[in-house]
Nucleic acid binder design. Structure first.
Lengths: 212, 212
DNA sequence: CGGAAGCTTGATATAAGTCAAGATCCGTGG
DNA sequence: CCACGGATCTTGACTTATATCAAGCTTCCG
């Protein structure tokens, strides 16, 4: 695995769990590429409601659209300890990020598509479907960057975090997880999860029909 | 109606209500700019569930991210009769769309931000809050392009359409609208709506607290 | 080891969904 | 111009998925 050590000049930063990578309405000085750990963008609403609006896993660019914005629109926080490379933003277009621009745009498009999917999930899927959908999505994204081991992958999210992703109560997430465990679709131990049958899990999560 | 005649060379197309502007998994040959009427992107799930994942109003680019994609990911349909200009896509970068690229990217970023907001709404807002949020958003977007008249604006969405935007049942949307009408926050007649007090409506819809 | 954070479970409450019927609106063909 | 029929809206009665409240348990870090 030819990791970050190939780019010894590339600056990177560490964040501890619960530390902010960015707050709302701050100038966008650089974009992060997550090398280790998980982060998320979120929104806070009245009476303590929180919704996670994007999840950022290792290997992914965090907030690629900052390339085109002056200020952040939402806070970004570390869900685990995080190490992230810094992609500088030069608005004049002559900076180092030019090399990265196509990748950042591709990341933006992916984000857009993923968010569209998630709108459909939050609007129309049941609790079980939503939980299956995120878990499957997480597994696939980790697999893409070689972070899975057979049918096992890291799963450092707290049930509270998960609830804020799927728009449910932590208590209800707990019950859904219990049911999935009961059906043998899911195993959780420590900060890892095992998906003995991703195909079934995906079926549960997709809830899809033929394209329109 | 002296509209499109100003740009006799710019091709444009008409769609009738319920006609598809695009289907899922088709090649992206051009991007539309809506000149008249409303359209939406949507997703279909099992057992007849539909979720609208983006709303496109007059003056807005429809699916700007197609600039960077080979094939559409979701169907787009006309919610009213629509007239839309065609923005051609030349992947070699020498075509007419170069002039439009910055605007398309700006539209993409806006879409991304709007979708993030909407994820928070679907995940954590109540029915009343969601309905207020869309109605206010619609009003503001129309105001931006000069399509409002005082506190009145077009509102051609059916209650079923609205339900598919806010992720609720048509019956429940009906009840929410009734309540808002009762509180004097909203008037609906024909295909127009009146928002006597947008500030109050916005309060109802925001449900926000200080940024993190 | 002690204490906080996280997990689990039961009992109960509530927002929103479902089903069903009737009323109204509206476009179309006679 | 009218009348018809389908789409849309409205309302009531009842159901259900998920939330809320509360308590005990477990894990893990310092």
């Amino acid at each position: 695995m030819p990791s970050a050590s190939h780019y010894p000049c590339e600056p990177s930063r560490q964040f501890r769990r619960h530390q902010h990578l960015a707050r709302s309405d701050e100038p966008c000085e650089q974009i992060y590429r997550i090398d280790e750990g998980w982060a998320c963008r979120y929104a806070l609403l009245g009476s303590g409601r929180r919704q996670i609006t994007a999840l950022y896993l290792p290997g992914e660019y965090c907030e690629p659209h900052w390339l085109f914005e002056r200020r952040s629109r939402a806070p970004v926080i570390a869900l685990t300890n995080v190490r992230a490379a810094l992609v500088p933003i030069d608005s004049d277009g002559s900076g180092v990020q030019v090399r990265e621009t196509p990748k950042l745009i591709a990341a933006m498009v992916k984000l857009l598509n993923r968010q569209s999917e998630w709108i459909a999930a939050l609007g129309r899927k049941t609790a079980v479907e939503r939980v299956c959908a995120v878990l499957f999505d997480i597994f696939e994204r980790l697999r893409l960057v070689g972070r899975t081991n057979g049918d096992i992958c890291p799963m450092p999210l707290t049930q509270v975090d998960l609830a804020d992703v799927v728009g449910l109560t932590p208590v209800h997430v707990n019950r859904v997880l219990k049911e999935l465990r009961g059906r043998g679709i899911l195993e959780l131990q420590g900060k890892r999860m095992r998906l003995p049958d991703p195909v079934i899990l995906n079926k549960f999560g997709e809830a899809k029909i033929a394209p329109g």
